[in-house]
Amino acid sequence: MSAVEKRLAELGLTVPEVVPPVAAYQPAVVVDGVVYVSGQLPLVDGKLPLTGKVGAEVTPEQAYDLARTCGLNLIAALKHAVGDLDRIARIAKVGGFVASTPDFTGQPGVINGASELLGQAFGDAGQHARSAVGVPVLPLDTPVEVDLIAHVA
């Protein structure tokens, strides 16, 4: 068990199986020591726990939890790509997308769900640059999608 997985276990979490792609792409691709992880939805056992827009059907607190699930799915994709999570030298960039109503402006707080989990799991190596943007709709009517770029040691 990697140190990352031990830290997750202390949070009561385990790394799930990698989420199978819902279209024509790979969950993660490694190129020259850089891992590009495709956008991860908050799927749990193949299902979305919630659908809709943040600021309407989904509360910011629920969306935060969904982003945290996206973060766990990002970790699963990283593990699938590199094998040992301790090989991740740095989470460099996170991109967060929040399907939200036009008047909702709390996208950064929502994506903190993923960012904070990555920091807890990877320690200093989990501190990253980030974007958090609002969009009108996401695949499968998910409220949140998160991707990332990481460096392998």
Rank of each mutant, 00 (worst) to 15 (best):
1 M>V: 14
2 S>M: 10
4 V>H: 02
7 R>A: 13
7 R>K: 14
9 A>T: 06
10 E>G: 10
11 L>I: 05
14 T>W: 00
14 T>S: 15
15 V>I: 04
15 V>G: 06
17 E>Y: 04
17 E>S: 15
18 V>H: 05
19 V>S: 13
19 V>T: 15
20 P>R: 15
22 V>C: 09
23 A>H: 07
25 Y>E: 08
25 Y>L: 08
25 Y>D: 05
26 Q>A: 14
26 Q>M: 04
27 P>S: 00
27 P>E: 01
28 A>H: 05
28 A>I: 01
28 A>E: 04
30 V>K: 08
30 V>F: 06
33 G>K: 13
33 G>M: 13
33 G>V: 10
33 G>F: 13
34 V>Q: 13
36 Y>C: 00
38 S>N: 11
41 L>P: 01
41 L>C: 01
41 L>E: 11
43 L>K: 11
43 L>I: 04
44 V>Y: 07
44 V>Q: 13
44 V>N: 01
44 V>A: 11
46 G>P: 06
47 K>P: 00
48 L>N: 06
49 P>Q: 10
49 P>E: 06
50 L>V: 08
54 V>E: 02
55 G>Y: 02
56 A>Y: 06
57 E>C: 00
57 E>K: 07
58 V>T: 03
59 T>G: 05
61 E>W: 02
62 Q>M: 00
63 A>K: 05
66 L>T: 01
66 L>Q: 13
67 A>Q: 11
72 L>S: 05
73 N>G: 07
75 I>W: 02
78 L>F: 06
79 K>Y: 11
81 A>Y: 00
81 A>P: 05
83 G>I: 01
87 R>P: 01
87 R>T: 07
88 I>G: 09
89 A>K: 07
89 A>T: 02
90 R>D: 02
90 R>I: 00
90 R>Y: 00
90 R>Q: 11
91 I>N: 05
91 I>T: 03
92 A>D: 12
92 A>K: 11
94 V>F: 04
94 V>Q: 04
96 G>H: 06
97 F>H: 14
98 V>I: 14
98 V>P: 02
100 S>D: 07
102 P>D: 06
103 D>T: 15
109 G>K: 13
110 V>E: 09
111 I>F: 07
111 I>S: 02
112 N>D: 15
112 N>T: 08
113 G>V: 08
114 A>Q: 06
115 S>I: 15
115 S>C: 10
115 S>W: 00
117 L>S: 10
118 L>A: 08
118 L>I: 03
119 G>F: 13
122 F>T: 05
127 Q>C: 06
127 Q>M: 14
127 Q>F: 14
128 H>S: 14
128 H>R: 12
128 H>Y: 15
130 R>N: 11
131 S>I: 13
131 S>Y: 14
133 V>S: 12
134 G>F: 06
134 G>Y: 02
135 V>R: 11
135 V>G: 09
139 P>L: 06
140 L>C: 03
141 D>Y: 05
142 T>G: 12
142 T>Y: 03
143 P>S: 02
144 V>K: 01
144 V>Q: 02
144 V>M: 00
144 V>W: 08
144 V>F: 02
146 V>A: 09
146 V>H: 04
147 D>Y: 08
148 L>C: 15
149 I>K: 13
150 A>N: 04
150 A>P: 12
151 H>Y: 15
151 H>E: 06
152 V>Y: 09
153 A>F: 07
